[in-house]
Design a protein around this nucleic acid. Structure first.
Lengths: 336, 336
DNA sequence: AACGTTTTCAGAAACGTTTCCGAAAATAAT
DNA sequence: ATTATTTTCGGAAACGTTTCTGAAAACGTT
């Protein structure tokens, strides 16, 4: 690849490179007509500014990195689209990296992005481990950071979260209203705030209705994880009456195993999922799920990041809590 | 952000920057003990090489750009994961951009990636328009390029495609075997080779069984597109006995509209999807679909790109055709 | 001990920009 | 017409690397 540079234009027009540079960037300090002359020649020669060189001298890139654990469920892609929309409006380009639910790959991704001088990072954790200390280091070095969805507990930075407490509470209450008392609670990694909050919602719903809380299990966020848990439950013959799952993928994984083993949903086991993937409304039976405002999560994260980018230096960590909705469908309703 | 540079190390150790650089890159030309001394100091100081500076001087980045039309269906994410796997093995980082099914955004993405000096590009088209002339330009400038899935017709470069002819043929034949004669064919944009091939497969299956071919419609690849087509068919009261859809999302969009309007699937309308998303096995009724080897598509694309990267200069365009499978499920089978 | 080789390193140029400084040119003020 | 002010531009340094050239140091050979 041969690129047209600022020097080529300067030579062609017999002006200094600094003048050409100014033609593109300065608002004053250059005569309008020479600016036009340069701009015209530039498009004529097919010039495109080299962002690499610019990054090097300006020490900033107008790039934002987004790191997500996976993108097989539509949840994260939707968040990204929300973030992309507001970031594009402010002339930031978005670089997406995917860490495959691996903490190690996540750190590696973060480091690559930082090495490439992204101006900020939007992250959803794959898990909790060494990564946190690295992120702490980054915040100390004033790298703008926003976490969403799967956020860490002890890092002082902006976060966008869902009101997990409230909706776990409502989802649990919904199951209780259906007459189920033995409700299995399944959540993601314990270190995630999200898990803690949902657990509390689950517990408080039980307290409110004076029912002893049921069993709790931690689990991953994929179909496979759900399937494994279901198999374990079946082999131990330890079948709950209802399940509040970590997310839809997990719920669907469990449903498949249960159905294959002859259990009827919701007649034998009722299930509620979390974070509403597109599948929920289409699988059979349709899956009751807590719907999250994915698009808005992305937008909010982007806006928090932009704030940090603008008043750089001082940054007051904010946490935006977004609301949701419980979509009641077949998987959790028994007609009596 | 304050970065530790090669200069800092040089100063700390009282050597020249070139020596430090050599410590990291050269195999000889440096005394092992000074190399060790430098390497030790470097990790001690937390040095990380600045890829931006390196890109600038080497005119290459070890970055590969992947551009996809959308990532709400799991198809493209899976392809990416396949590509990522082999690219990572060869020390390439992957930058993903998403063009939202917009040709304009796709060009913009491609240009950003090129400006950022990616060493190569893996692309699936959002559509056909001005983008093709830009890609032609790129190939003329020797930018390594690989298209997959939605590939253009007149560009001389490597491609990874699915055997659309064959599987459209089989899928059509499957419907004919079920006793359906009025089969509606739905494909993506006409300019895509994929559409042309499927159409031929569809036609030839009809010829083989001496049945006149049915109607053909072109359509987008999203649920919404499918839903719109279905609504149009219903309003015109022009309901086919069976449908071969452009992809699963399109099929599912149609199914929803038909079901909501009281049609029974497959009793009133049989449907076959394409490219097997995860949903196919989970929706109700389960969807017959042509399964594509997504992961392998990604791997193959990455390998073709690596080939171009290695023997740069001469590049013999190859087209890899991958095979698939027809997963027959409820949506296309009527028990007689 | 004198010379030729090889090994090891320092110095400087280069990549494509931006930006600082100061000089020339144009304009305004006297 | 002279000086002061502003506008417009050229030159050079800088960003953090790699890479080329050549010199010094170490070694071997006679």
């Amino acid at each position: 690849m041969k690129y047209v540079t600022i020097k080529d234009i300067a030579k062609a027009l017999n002006v200094a490179v600094s003048t050409v540079s100014r033609a593109f960037n300065d608002k004053y300090d250059i005569k309008p007509e020479t600016r036009d002359r340069i701009l015209k020649k530039a498009t004529e020669m097919g010039y495109r500014p080299n962002p690499i060189a610019r990054k090097l001298v300006q020490q900033r890139s107008f790039n934002i990195g987004i790191i997500i654990p996976e993108f097989e469920n539509s949840f994260f892609p939707q968040v990204i689209m929300g973030a992309q929309e507001v970031l594009h409006q402010h002339n930031y380009q978005v670089l997406i990296m995917q860490s495959n639910e691996s903490v190690d790959l996540e750190i590696q991704n973060a480091k690559t992005l930082v090495d490439n001088m992204v101006d900020g990072l939007i992250i959803s954790l794959s898990g909790v481990g060494d990564n946190l200390s690295y992120y702490k280091e980054l915040t100390e070095k004033k790298m703008p950071l926003v976490f969403f969805n799967r956020v860490p507990e002890n890092i002082e930075t902006s976060k966008v979260v869902f009101d997990d407490y409230k909706w776990a509470f409502f989802a649990t209450e919904h199951l209780i209203h259906q007459g189920f008392e033995d409700i299995l609670f399944i959540s993601g990694a314990n270190e995630l705030i999200l898990s803690k909050n949902r657990r509390k919602g689950y517990d408080d719903a039980h307290k409110k209705h004076r029912i002893p809380a049921g069993k709790k299990i931690t689990c991953g966020f994929s179909m496979k994880d759900g399937a494994e848990i279901a198999e374990k439950l079946i082999s131990k013959n330890n079948i709950p009456r209802a399940i509040l799952a970590a997310n839809d993928a997990c719920a669907i994984g469990m449903m498949r195993v249960f159905k294959d083993s002859g259990f009827k949903i919701p007649e034998d086991i009722a299930i509620v999922g979390f974070s509403e993937t597109k599948m929920a409304a289409h699988i059979s039976p349709t899956l009751t799920s807590v719907e999250q405002p994915t698009y808005e999560i992305g937008k909010a994260a982007a806006q928090l990041l932009l704030e940090q980018l603008q008043n750089k230096g001082i940054h007051i960590p904010q946490t935006i809590v977004l609301n949701g909705r419980l979509n009641v469908r077949e998987s959790s309703v028994v007609l009596s």
